[in-house]
Design a protein around this nucleic acid. Sequence first.
RNA 1: GGGAGCUUAGCUCAGCUGGUUCAGAGCAUCUGCCUUACAAGCAGAGGGUCACUGGUUCGAACCCAGUAGUUCCCACCA
Length: 878
Amino acid sequence: MEIPKTYDPATAENKWYPYWMNNGFFRSVPDEREPYTIVIPPPNVTGVLHMGHMLNNTLQDVLIRRARMLGKNACWIPGTDHASIATEAKVVAMLKEKGIQKSDLTRDEFLKYAWEWKEKYGGIILDQLKKLGASCDWERTRFTMEDDLSDAVIEVFIDLHKKGHIYRGTRMVNWDPVGLTAVSDEEVIHKEVDSTLYHVRYKVENSDEFITIATTRPETILGDTAVCINPMDKRYFHLHGKNIIVPIVNRVVPLITDEYVTMDFGTGALKVTPAHDINDYMLGQKHRLQTIDVLSPDGKMSDAAGYYIGEDRFVVRKKIAKDLDAAGHLVKTEPYKSNIGFSERTNAVIEPKLSMQWFLKMDELAKPALENVMNDNIRLYPEKFKNTYRHWMENVHDWCISRQLWWGQRIPAWYDEHGDFVVAKTEAEARNLFKQKNNAFADDAKIKQDEDVLDTWFSSWLWPISVFDGFKDPDNADIKYYYPTNDLVTAPEILFFWVARMIIAGYEYRGDKPFSNVYLTGIVRDKQGRKMSKSLGNSPEPLELINKYGADGVRVGMLLSSPAGNDLPFDESLCEQGRNFANKIWNAFRLIQSWSETEGKSAPDNRDYTLVLKWFEQKLLAETEIINDQFSKYRVSEALMSSYKLVWDDFCSWYLEIVKPGMGQAIQPEVYHATIQYFESLMKLLHPFMPFITEELWHNIAERKESDCIIVATWPEAGKHDSSLLADFDAAIQLVSGIRNIRKSKNIPNREALHVTFKGGPEKGHEGFHFVVTKLCNLSGLESVTEKPADQLSILLRNHEYFMNITGFVDHEEERKKINEELIYTKNFLESVMKKLGNERFVTNAKPDILALEQKKKSDAEAKIELLERKLNPDGVR
RNA sequence: GGGAGCUUAGCUCAGCUGGUUCAGAGCAUCUGCCUUACAAGCAGAGGGUCACUGGUUCGAACCCAGUAGUUCCCACCA
């Protein structure tokens, strides 16, 4: 049968993914096995797959597939997040293209469009994950805004309100004038921006004097309700108790004193605009100042401003500067760098704005969430995030959970005509509550529900519980079986948005952690270290990468250089390396396959390979143990690298080359069958990383039923191995490398057979592999001699000297130089060992095995020195 | 401003309890090979003052202090 020289990923991918799905290999239902569960960080319904998703989901798939092979009941729950702000923005934009304004629609009309949009585009990202090979239980796909999950959100709101954790209050919030909503602190990105500091003088009432303030936002002067100075500031002592006249509006406001003002910044005088600055707001509260909101929600000057009404704040900033100047109030301007907050979603400049919002008190709820991370009940990988986590949880702020949007779970609060409110699931319940509060409450009294919806994270924080219907039916079989889940794989950016809050919800509603381990991935960056983003256009299209390099190749590429918590500087060449690896495996298979045809047809290769078979068997045990250990520490890229080297170096470069039958020879059946077994084990080890090619080869390499799939095969055994055998083999291949090196440096072609000898008996164990050396190096012989041959090149290995019959090439000076260098190194080494052994404190304190090791180092070094010295002075003449 | 982390080969990173067969890996580079599985390959080689300075120790890439550079998080002085 003709097998193509290169692996064709598309064929395997199109064949096996549907096969796995149709045969229910991804499906999980509770049974007697140990569960292993991951809930996906639900991507936004608006999302399309980007490189971050690729990394994240590849990792999850690796973990889930390995758990499945370890015999666990592996369950990976997929789903999507309704993402209020992002989705609403998309729908608004879509409507705009159709010529429809959101403001022309009723809430229900708008939501109808939004749902249509979701049905149409909401599943794209999940389909893309399938291309990557994600083995999610698709029958369990959830959506954060489906009925059951929304019910859970509402119930939790009501419950937390009942417990007194939710309150309503006037607060300074981060207002997004484009999104027209409040956003949480975490969604504001601060950037340093070049701006102007305006020095403006205000007239002191009943005086000719002026007081000069500095501001970057002169448009807010219209909302000033005080000027503040430090009480200790000598410059202004004489003004204490006076009033100030705000320019343009000519409002008379008090001059107040507060230590908050730093004397040496600007002019030491601060204009106070409680409606538009968080610190001013606090000053306003403290000094009972009037609050004048001069901006409307869309960032234009409001009626209350009195001037420039309806004009954008940035336009007004320039205008008012001019007008102030004209009126003689502008003293000077200077360039100034200030930190400005931008909305993460819309990139609009955030306005601090006073508004009525709903808040969740965090201090008490956060306690168990902090404690259980600190005591390692929940482990973060890498551990360094524990610090960050603690810092945040110890200084946690109340969570503003209301959003001025329509797409999301509507807040279950109801207002009567006086503005009193109750929290209830339905209007009928709300009426009852009103009645309980007030007997006189009329049956036909008008009440209306809060217009706002809840923050998206207020639904995603329930995700690990709600996907198992843990609110709807707290004792159902699924939640009891799968919760707490095992591992969560997510980005550090949402450690607080999401991870911390899930932990909080877990303890509040299940009395238990939502997951045991959190693997925090890095950010995928481009070669220049920039974050990959759509706006920069520096992100490769994931599906194109998959087409180009195969899903397995891309998976390997993503994982190759991404230890937990480290950013991944992505480069397509990584995928190329992944593809090349797949091809290497493919060709190893081709080689083995070709042997099956030689079996019995020609004279068998009659070498005794028993020891080599044993070596590889032991090597597999040893490496599997290492790989298991790396997995247990979530060192996934290291586990991949170990597997990579096991396959490429140990199996392909050494094992296959050794057992490969010579030209015209047939392989021995037992060697062939052992090789197949080893290959199968290797495929299993690789399966979590490279699901497609391993499944394909699994079915090709041996006769097996189609239903016998590697995806559900048993993970290879690890365990006790003969380390001296492994060391003996290492010595043999070192000899091989040494001989090859000399061949190369002396330009002796491989077809020219060499004869190698060594003095005295070989070290025991090691000689068993001599035939390996003979075969791989094309030796005409490898035997012991009693006398050291004269004038031959030699190799030193484990205190034994091997001689090669290539007399003509010896460069004595060069050789002596090399030997001398090695001698010096070895002597220094011995010296340090002796120093240690001569140190009483070392000898008394070191563990016995370390001591023994040092003794061995000593004797080895001594033997080597002796040998080297003899090499330099072969006749004992000095 | 407060906090945390990082700095090891050209690149990306290991180095887990301090111990010179411990200075490592992969990629990249260089050299030689179209050797019947694979040129998406084979074989070989070169490459590092472990950021710097000092300290602790019999011994430091590893522990401590300081310095420099760098990244992230938190706060937000108009």
